[in-house]
Nucleic acid binder design. Sequence first.
DNA 1: AATCTTTACGACCGGTCGTTCTTTTAGTAG
DNA 2: CTACTAAAAGAACGACCGGTCGTAAAGATT
Lengths: 212, 212
Amino acid sequence: MTTRDGRLARGDRTRTRVLDAAVVLATRNGLDGLSLGQVADALTISKSALFAHWRSKEELQLATIERAREQWLEQVISPALREPRGLRRLWALHRHRIAFYADRVLPGGCFFGNVQFEFNARQGPIHDRLAAILTDWLALIERLAGEAIALGELRPETDPALLAYEAEALGLAAVMQSRLLGPDAVYDHALRSMRDRLRALSTDPTLIKEHE
Amino acid sequence: MTTRDGRLARGDRTRTRVLDAAVVLATRNGLDGLSLGQVADALTISKSALFAHWRSKEELQLATIERAREQWLEQVISPALREPRGLRRLWALHRHRIAFYADRVLPGGCFFGNVQFEFNARQGPIHDRLAAILTDWLALIERLAGEAIALGELRPETDPALLAYEAEALGLAAVMQSRLLGPDAVYDHALRSMRDRLRALSTDPTLIKEHE
DNA sequence: AATCTTTACGACCGGTCGTTCTTTTAGTAG
DNA sequence: CTACTAAAAGAACGACCGGTCGTAAAGATT
């Protein structure tokens, strides 16, 4: 779907524009509350034009999830993976996750936080995709924790799955509380809790301190 | 609004029935996705009958929040407050909170978890009420932590606000993950994380153990 | 038993939703 | 420049939404 000189075809450029707007709107109003009319209005195109790119609303919703995942990979996971492996990479992942919403990259809060709660009691392809993404996210933290244990930076009795659960919990609460109560102390709490936890589990407490 | 012999009037009984159904439906579909037609159908009454009790959908939504709060008070907070004061009461609060959803009291997940994420980027009376409820909940945990410190059961350097944040985060993640990934290991994680945290902060590690 | 209030019903309104269809525009290739 | 095709516009659809209204039944009061 590219022209002869390698640029993206018009359709592909439109698709990306649509999905970027859909991520913002779905973050604010939910994936179910996402209105095709609002998406179209935000881009000054017509509602029916959307059906030239996706067969149904559900297909657009699934494409929106994939777009949000791309943003998540680019802005949270990739920067963290550029850190030195082991404990520092684990700590960087948490910091980037918290900063991702502290900097308000996505207006309206955390896309995955909102959407996962929205679909946590439903069934269907959207639920399944969200569950797979969450599983991958937890598995990544577990893997990094395992690396840190193997490097001797975390105590051998550390439970990677438990640590992954705690990291996810602290990030989730940060997103929710910061939007509902204001971001004043929340991000500080999310960072301090994880730092305390990692220090308590680490063999060398100075490893975290210098990366604050 | 009671009859001469003290029973609830018919209207009050209907209101309670409606709100109980509304809590279940709103937990599953969100407070915005709550359809008055669905509520009416669930009770085999007519949609218009609802407007005899509440002036608008928003009033019913606010009443639904209050009903969910009543259930939360009855089934989580009150039982915990019957425990001995201090650390044991704090630990009981966390256990009851996790058990509340482990036992699936509310089909479809956690009312407040879902709804708070739904409204975390909006404004208006619903957002304000949810923020106040969350503030009260965090303040309660802080107060219990303060009591435990005063009793000498938690180390004096314990930060009550940070502990409240962590407890809320662990419970929130338990609800979300258990619905999305299945409840197998999640509740165990939520309990173990909090237990580890409280033990690390307590002056006498056996205080928690005996109340598992 | 008669009266008044509460509660519920069923039809209906305007509006918005997702979706489909037909027509027009505009970018690309020969 | 012309022909072809992908993309967008615009109107219209059926379904569902929250909300209103007039009416009827049920319960309590006197």
